[in-house]
């Protein structure tokens, strides 16, 4: 089943096409990767999917329903959550409450505060958060802040996660842990759509990959197809 589908999705910033006529789909249960050079429009595409922006033209469907034009909180409650390239956490709020917020507001069914806190603690354990959970999130290391963000997204009972460069800025050990985590998230039954710059990571975990360049899709396929595609090598390495 196709979880997410985009058809001729287009977004302009002034005269510049940030995302131009992009078609894509993500199958349920897969890990789908999105790569491309800086400024290729990867994060813009995420913003279009999650409702931060509305596409100028084209349609985005989630679980068969049109979501382009909906407010972010509605899309979230339909079962799609995201993380951000620059971590966006609630710095002065304890880590556990950062996550509980997702359970309290993002889930389709409402839960009590006590249940939300319990879920938040379990999810923090799941993502490998190993420091006291009552520390304000602003005081955590980058790796732990990213864990909080992922746990918050999972707390919304999402069926699909948009992960925007979860591995950027992490040490090699942390990157390996993050890759492991992405797989474990998929094993929970959550479809993963991720943007990544770390090639080794994306080739290692993704089932399929799409490549954007100047807002346009230049390739998609299995990691093997992508790594041998002439067009992709040209864009990334020059001729």
């Amino acid at each position: 089943m196709r979880m997410l589908e985009g058809e001729k999705v287009t977004k302009y910033f002034g005269g510049l096409a940030a995302v131009l006529q992009v078609d894509f789909y993500v199958e349920q249960g897969e890990i789908f990767g999105l790569i491309g050079p800086n400024g290729a429009g990867k994060t813009t595409l995420f913003n279009l999917i999650s409702g931060a922006f509305t596409p100028k033209s084209g349609v985005i469907k989630f679980k068969g329903e049109k979501i382009s034009g909906l407010k972010p909180y509605k899309i979230c409650r339909m079962g799609m959550a995201r993380t951000f390239q620059e971590v966006k956490i609630f710095a002065n709020v304890p880590a556990v409450q950062n996550v509980a917020l997702g359970a309290l507001f993002g889930a389709p069914k409402s839960v009590s505060t006590a249940e939300a806190t319990k879920e938040a603690e379990e999810l923090l354990d799941f993502v490998g958060f190993a420091v006291p959970k009552n520390i304000p999130a602003g005081g955590l290391t980058l790796a732990n802040q990213k864990r909080v963000e992922i746990a918050r997204a999972l707390a919304t009972k999402a069926d699909m996660l948009l992960l925007d460069e979860v591995m950027a800025g992490l040490t090699p050990t942390e990157t390996a842990e993050a890759m492991e985590l992405v797989k474990r998230i998929r094993d929970r039954g959550v479809t993963v759509f991720l943007i990544e710059h770390v090639m080794r990571a994306i080739m290692g975990v993704c089932d399929r990959i799409m490549v954007l360049h100047h807002g346009e899709k230049i390739a998609d396929g299995t990691p093997k197809e992508i790594s041998t595609s002439k067009k992709v090598i040209e864009v990334y390495l020059g001729e």
Partner: peptide
Amino acid sequence: EAAAHSGV
């Protein structure tokens, strides 16, 4: 922004 994307 994070609040909005977490369902608030």
